[in-house]
Design a protein around this nucleic acid. Structure first.
Length: 832
RNA sequence: GCGGACGUGGCGAAAUCGGUAGACGCAGCGGACUUAAAAUCCGCUUGCCCCAGGCAGUGCGGGUUCGAGUCCCGCCGUCCGCACCA
């Protein structure tokens, strides 16, 4: 008789069965078609949050569905385990970063297991373990040997109190986010990876990624920022120097009225060497803020060096050379030609300093060389006031100038990217040690691979600021691998984005003696479906794409793109609550719009991403305790489309729990019966096909809606063989989403084996089509009636049926319609 | 500023190619069962009106079409990314 589904008991029992049977361990030697389903691995911050639950539930449904449809599925999990929070914990709580991280991993792994994810835990990895990062060091050395790694002086954000380098995101209003100290620009020797060498490949490769969101591809395209134009040189009247500039508008070269160089451009530096005013100006440029708002409001400032540049196409034209605060040293060549008439920024600058503004592109019928107004003309048109270019359209003129520059040898067509090389040095302890030894005699020397991994020391202290590796008494003192003399280890560690740039390859195979087995990696890769947050749209995904291409470049792996399919899921959100005195309150502190502790009304704020600072988080674990894993999983898949935000609600999770119980009542009441129920057969097969389609499109909310409909239809149906069959099929249909109740029901119904191993129900195509259709009858485009006709009724019969409708007869009032549109099996529109 | 996405009931949403707008869920209302409650089941639930019917309705204003949530033009709003990029 109808019992309750005891989720707590069933969850644990089935999770144990899956684990003991190694149900979800992927076989590398399988002959089945492969499916690699991967969710972005978590940072072990302490506890699983709702965002993880949503992310991993989506991947899990897909992974389980793929297994049911005959695929060998690789669905692994690991830990992105290096990073700052572990060091912060060490500083604040005096715990060891390694111990803290491993404790967190243990906690979070147990939490993930309670959700019943079909993960291959035999392939679990943590990037903070030497058996992972040692191989990473080997790969780093391979890239180094191939010339893809180099070292250069680079400006960094230096926090003088914490004695550390800060990432741009860690600098808030010019101050360190933690110390509050004014951040300095400091030049440090840093390790770089030559991602720019692959800029064009990474850009072109985007075109092959048909299963990526356009949004992400566009973001990467903009990030790479390819521009083509002309790189050319201005000679100076002093005869000694030259200035190289890059322009995307070489066509406007006759409109140039000044040349501007960056504050740290060699010309500016040389000029300032014996000029106090110039030096002061350069200092002033450096003080400018770098936040978006500051840049927007910052005045365009220039300093006239008195130098004159000679126009390459007309030696009689001399252009003043300015040092300008808006010219960036690290883009192009750090110098620009200013064409005020056709560039807004140049125009603002020219007006401010009273420079010529010469029109060289006709704007409609305006061809006057004197350009009026304060809005630069950037549109198309024919060249004017430009000697041999006159009359040419913009694009043709660009080509003509480039051709002339190349013929005369003062410039060449070139492509410039916004993308910079990837600085991977971090002056931190909790990261992968860079496997290099610095020797006074030999310079930087790679650590021999036989000596890898270079392990992090455990006896480090965090009681004083700075890099613990650097101040460790012995760790950095080693002999040079090349000459044997005393030398120093590199004490920088690698950016954690390096760790996540190849973990998906390591999942495919995990040999002890090398980073990966090439054959196994090439069998599994690329990842078929990668799922994660959109916040990784640029950095992680670009770095992983670069790393994969770099491995191909050095002949280690023949894969172009690591992720064939990408899906970026929305966040889990919740209302925010604020007490009258401005304190944020957590959902547990509020009931019926009143703060429980004080009885005071609270202000209910907007629905936002769950965040600790606004206290609107809901911890998944107690929810799993209360409702069971299936209800939580079902909630994560219901209602909101997966790419959109999902508002968490207590009512919603209760609804999901009720549905799990409703399923169980249906399964528990399974009985054998006789007779056919054609309508239910149809509904079942439409659902099988529809849910499959929805899961493959990751439209889980639609699959959920279809399953609700099927459940309602089975409940309503009278006992029949069809109903029994549909109920058994339903167990399989819901099993990717709510696997525990499905296994429980599957076993109770006397099936052999696990529902996790059962095949997806087969579809009978004959049952997908209805034999009757409802036809809409419109008069003048407005719905007036509907009628049911056999599917496939021809036009004439459909029209006749429509004209016979009582309502139509009344509305037409005896008149014949002027026009009749018949769409068979859909509608009839009578135009009166 | 540049680039992009989105805008549908009280709420989350659906509507595959231009063809019955609001499937499905949540919340709400009414009823059945019950001593009662919970659970469950049944029904209603876009708005308005002269309520067996009708009118309006997918951010706003136009347009194309027999027919527009869907296509086109112009606005408004929200969100996201980039940002002195030459």
């Amino acid at each position: 008789m109808a019992s309750r589904f005891n989720a707590l008991k069933a969850d644990a029992a089935w999770q144990k069965v899956w684990e003991e049977n190694r149900t979800f361990a992927a076989r590398n030697d399988s002959s089945l078609p492969r499916a690699y389903v991967l969710e972005m691995f978590p940072y072990p911050s302490g506890r699983i949050h709702m965002g993880h639950v949503r992310n991993y539930t989506m991947g899990d449904v897909l992974a389980r569905y793929k297994r049911m449809t005959g695929h060998e599925v690789l669905h692994p999990m690991g830990w992105d385990a290096f990073g700052m929070p572990a060091e912060n914990a060490a500083m604040e709580k005096g715990v060891a970063p390694g111990g803290w991280t491993r404790d967190n991993i243990a906690t979070m792994k147990a939490q993930l297991k309670r959700l019943g994810f079909a993960l291959d835990w035999t392939r679990e990895l943590a990037t903070c373990e030497p058996d992972y990062y040692g191989h990473e060091q080997a790969l780093f050395l391979d890239l180094y040997a191939a010339g893809l790694v180099y070292r250069k002086e680079s400006a960094v954000n230096w926090d003088p109190v914490d004695m550390t380098v800060l990432a741009n995101e860690q600098v808030i209003d010019g101050r360190g986010w933690r110390s509050g100290a004014l951040v300095e620009k400091r030049k440090l020797s840093q390790w770089f990876l030559k991602i720019t060498q692959f800029a064009d490949e990474l850009l072109e490769g985007l075109k092959s990624l048909d299963h990526w969101p356009d949004k992400v591809k566009l973001m990467q395209e903009n990030w790479i920022g390819k521009s083509s134009g002309l790189t050319f040189r201005f000679a100076l009247t002093n005869g000694s120097d030259e200035i190289e500039v890059f322009s995307t508008r070489p066509d406007t070269i006759f409109g140039a009225s000044f040349v501007a160089v960056a504050a740290d451009h060699p010309i500016a530096q040389a000029h300032a060497a014996d000029n106090v005013e110039a030096l002061a100006f350069i200092e002033r440029c450096k003080q400018g803020g770098t936040t978006a708002a500051e840049i927007e409001t910052q005045e365009k400032l220039g300093y006239d060096t008195g130098l004159k540049a000679i126009h390459p196409l007309d030696a009689s034209i001399e252009l003043p050379v300015y040092i300008a605060n808006f010219v960036l040293m690290d883009y192009g060549s750090g110098a620009v030609m200013g064409v005020p008439a056709h560039d807004q920024r140049d125009l603002d600058f020219a007006r401010k300093y009273g420079l010529d503004v010469r029109r060289v592109v006709a704007e409609g019928d305006k061809t006057d060389p004197v350009f009026d107004g304060d809005e630069a003309y950037t549109g198309s048109g024919a060249l004017v006031n430009s000697a041999f270019l006159d009359g040419m359209p913009v694009e043709e003129a660009k080509r003509a100038v480039i051709a002339r520059a190349e013929a005369e040898g003062w410039g060449h067509g070139s492509t410039v990217y916004r993308l910079r090389d990837w600085g991977v040095s971090r002056q931190r302890y909790w990261g992968t040690p860079i496997p290099i030894v610095h020797c006074d005699a030999c310079g930087p020397v790679p650590v021999p691979k036989s000596e890898l991994p270079v392990e992090l020391p455990h006896d480090v202290t965090f009681d004083v600021p700075g890099n613990p590796l650097d101040r460790h008494p012995t760790w950095k003192h080693v002999d040079c691998p090349s000459c044997g003399k005393p030398a120093r280890r590199e004490t920088d560690t690698l950016d954690t984005f390096v760790d996540s740039s190849w973990y998906f390859i390591r999942f495919a195979s995990q040999p002890d003696d090398k980073p990966f087995d090439r054959e196994a990696a090439e069998k599994w890769l690329p990842v078929g479906q990668y799922i994660g947050g959109v916040e990784h749209a640029i950095l992680h995904l670009l770095y992983a794409r670069f790393w994969t291409r770099a491995l191909k470049h050095i002949g280690m792996l023949d894969i172009d793109e690591p992720f064939a399919g990408l899906f970026t899921q929305g966040m889990v959100t919740h209302e925010t609550y604020k007490a009258a005195d401005g304190r944020w309150l957590g959902p547990a502190e509020v009931e019926n719009g009143v703060e429980i502790a004080t009885g005071q009304p609270v202000e209910i704020g907007r629905v936002e991403k769950m965040s600790k600072s606004k206290k609107n988080t809901v911890d998944p674990e107690p929810i799993v305790d209360q409702y069971g894993a299936d209800a939580v999983r079902w909630f994560m898949l219901s209602d909101s489309p997966p790419e959109r935000d999902l508002p968490w609600s207590e009512a919603g999770i209760e609804g999901s729990w009720r549905f799990v119980q409703r399923l169980w009542r249906l399964f528990d009441g399974l009985e054998d019966a006789e007779g056919e129920d054609k309508a239910l057969d149809r509904k079942l097969h439409q659902t099988i096909a529809g849910v499959a389609e929805d899961i493959e499109a990751l439209s889980f909310n639609k699959a959920v809606a279809k399953l609700y409909e099927l459940v309602a239809a089975i409940e309503k149906a009278a006992p029949s063989a069809s109903r029994t069959n549909a109920t058994r099929a339903l167990m399989r249909l819901v099993s990717p989403m709510v696997p525990h109740v499905a296994e429980e029901a599957w076993a109770a119904a006397g099936h052999d084996g696990l529902v996790a191993n059962a095949p997806w129900p087969a579809v009978d195509p004959a049952l997908l089509v209805e034999d009757e259709v409802t036809i809409a009858i419109q008069v003048n485009g407005k719905l007036r009636d509907t009628l049911t006709l056999p599917k496939g009724t021809d036009r004439a019969a459909t029209e006749a049926a429509a004209l016979a409708s009582d309502k139509v007869v009344r509305l037409l009032d005896g008149k014949a319609p002027k026009k009749v549109i018949v769409v068979p099996d859909r509608l009839v529109n009578l135009v009166a």
